[in-house]
Design a protein around this nucleic acid. Structure first.
Lengths: 234, 234
DNA sequence: ACGATAAGTTAACATCGTTAACTATGCAAG
DNA sequence: CTTGCATAGTTAACGATGTTAACTTATCGT
């Protein structure tokens, strides 16, 4: 094995895949072109990935990890006792990563079209869970601190509780249904708002959607978070 | 020109493209396979479309049209003076079409990835405008009827007005900035919520997101619409 | 020293999008 | 009626793609 320059590591492969993704979207990440840019023959890649789909899967997992790391770091730069600020920071980190890496964001959160890379048990689920945990921990703290606004249990949609997936948390850390409801709402709205903005679907109304979209996320936080109680409760 | 069965119309081509889209996503709509299913040679399709990208563009335009028609019909089945109900009906039609045609929805509103079919002046813009008009007319009526909740102009984000794209409507039908703000908010949130639901990104929390997602849209309507004033205003 | 395993290579196959060159049909003008 | 031409299709071919098979080479543990 001659090392023409560097070793042919999975990292270098994924990195080239990302270049191609940025340049021309998913259809542009083409096995033979990846090989060309690595000065290597195409079948060599099959020692590291089982095919083109696997290349995409590796890339997705890597990007999910980068995104999760970004949000995690933003969150952990906030004073430990300020859960509301943590939510704001993680959300802002999510949004700015998405805007700065539109193609990558689209690959991760674009509609998982039939026939595309559909990893059921691949390395994506680990990264995906890690990402979920970043936000789950914030909501957990909001809940413990009494800063999470929660609807009355009787106001939840009929049959909502029955559809809940029981979380893998220990029983003493389980979220009450109303908290899961708020978590899911925060997630659905955050991801939805950012997806629409990143896709440029606001272009018909404004030339720059920056201040508008940011306000939408702030309003969401306002709906989720309870103002700090005034005096000491005891 | 032998007519083996039917004539080779653009409609039949688009219809086969849609079949393939459903079966295997965008990568599965393959020129030669389209031709095969039409019992025709591949180059024959080039008399009707200029290539694979054009095939996708035609399909997108057709789907946008179908979606717009669906929303339009739902809206027009509501008593003409009940604008709030029109919004609800059009939104519900949008959502149920999206859920019933996930692949198609993903193609229309999936992230417009670089390298994919990017029609700037193709037949898509017409269908797209038509779709926008369906909802714009509803918001216009809500506005005229005083049923559109609008934020105070001083509460709009700094610099928001400056980014607004001036609409092609006659000056006497222009929306005030606060109304555009609400229109854009309704659009961004509706499209975002539905995109996330259709993509199945709620699966980690619930087995069926139906009642949950429906409630999110109802809450959105509640934020957008002003309750009917009690007595006669005069 | 040696053989097995890992990590490359070249050659080949079927399939893809697209173009070029050709053919047959149907209709309008003389 | 015939001529002629645009329309709508055909076959053949080119280059590029994903993937597999068969082969080569280097590394390293025993």
């Amino acid at each position: 094995m001659q090392e023409s320059r560097l070793a042919l590591t999975t990292d270098r492969i994924v990195s080239v895949c990302r270049e191609l993704l940025i340049e021309g979207g998913p259809p542009a990440v083409v096995v033979r072109e990846v090989a060309r840019r690595l000065s290597v023959s195409a079948p060599a890649l099959y020692k590291h990935a089982s095919g083109r789909d696997d290349l995409l899967t590796l890339l997705i997992a890597s990007l999910q990890d980068e995104l999760a790391t970004n949000c995690e770091q933003a969150r952990d730069a906030i004073p430990a006792d300020d859960a509301p600020a943590k939510l704001g920071a993680a959300t802002a980190a999510f949004r700015s990563w998405a805007l700065a890496n539109r193609s990558e964001f689209a690959l991760i959160y674009g509609q998982p079209i039939a026939g595309y890379s559909a990893p059921e048990d691949g390395p994506t689920v680990g990264s995906s869970l890690r990402f979920g945990r970043v936000f789950a921990e914030i909501y957990g703290q909001l809940l413990r601190d009494g800063r999470l606004r929660m609807p009355d249990e009787t106001d939840l949609p009929e049959g909502f509780e029955r559809t809940l997936v029981h979380s893998p948390l220990p029983p003493d850390q389980q979220f009450p249904p109303a908290a899961v409801y708020q978590f899911a709402m925060g997630f659905q709205r955050m991801l939805g708002l950012i997806s629409v903005e990143v896709a440029g679907h606001l272009g018909w109304a404004m030339t720059s959607s920056d201040v508008f979209a940011q306000r939408q996320l702030e309003d969401l936080a306002g709906e989720l978070i309870l103002p700090k109680p005034k005096g000491p409760s005891a």
